[in-house]
């Protein structure tokens, strides 16, 4: 029961309280670039969720089985980024071969994901927080993906409506998106302190 509650708390905390986009500024580039339409945003979110869960788990395993406590620890960043690049490549090949229709809908986002800082960021945070249990690492990685999807979909919804709003000429595009994102982070601050 205790373990379950730890996992649940961890999940809620990474989705709402420590949301990677709103509190750690990770994954801002696709957040600003892609989130123009809700269906695109959702596709991107799903692709990120998949890759982040896979690479979060893999890097945790590599970190704990190979790197920790050995002199190889210094190559952690190199290993992490190679795992992520490999995972992205693997997912892309797999999806293209077995789910062509799925590939049509979100395959184009896959190559972009390697340089999505949310993924490397999450792997680094799992290491930084000292997560020492595989199940927890999996849940946190999945939660991070869900949190990202949620953030990017909310933003896309707002931006679809922003198109109809009368925004000052010089603030059109990226500036107003950033300001909206700022207001969203304020709203999400309300969740802080929920998990004790």
């Amino acid at each position: 029961m205790d373990r379950l509650s730890i996992l649940l708390m961890g999940f809620i905390s990474i989705v709402l309280i420590n949301n990677l986009v709103f509190t750690k500024f990770l994954g801002i580039c696709p957040y600003l670039g892609v989130s123009g339409r809700i269906d695109m945003a959702f596709g991107m979110g799903m692709a990120v969720t998949f890759v982040v869960t896979l690479s979060g788990t893999l890097t945790w395993l590599i970190d704990h089985l190979l790197l920790m406590g050995t002199p190889l620890e210094v190559t952690r960043y190199v290993c992490f980024i190679l795992v992520i690049a490999g995972a992205v490549q693997l997912v892309e090949m797999y999806v293209r071969k077995f789910f062509p229709s799925l590939y049509e809908s979100f395959g184009i986002f896959l190559p972009l994901i390697t340089t999505n800082c949310a993924i490397l960021g999450l792997c680094l945070f799992i290491n930084l927080w000292g997560i020492d249990n595989l199940l927890e690492a999996v849940v946190l990685s999945f939660g991070a993906g869900v949190g990202f999807t949620m953030a990017i979909c909310i933003m896309a919804g707002i931006r679809e409506n922003l198109n109809m709003a009368d925004v000052p000429e010089s603030l059109k595009g990226a500036p107003i998106t950033l300001i909206t994102a700022g207001l969203l982070t304020l709203a999400f601050m309300g969740f802080a302190g929920m998990v004790k």
Binding site: F25, E169, P175
Partner: peptide, 22 residues
């Protein structure tokens, strides 16, 4: 110094840059 400040300041700054370059 919170995330809000970061987003809004950068947003306004980008707006300012747009005005200047125009």
């Amino acid at each position: 110094s919170m995330p809000v400040g970061a987003f809004i300041t950068l947003g306004l700054m980008l707006g300012l840059v747009n005005v200047v370059s125009k």
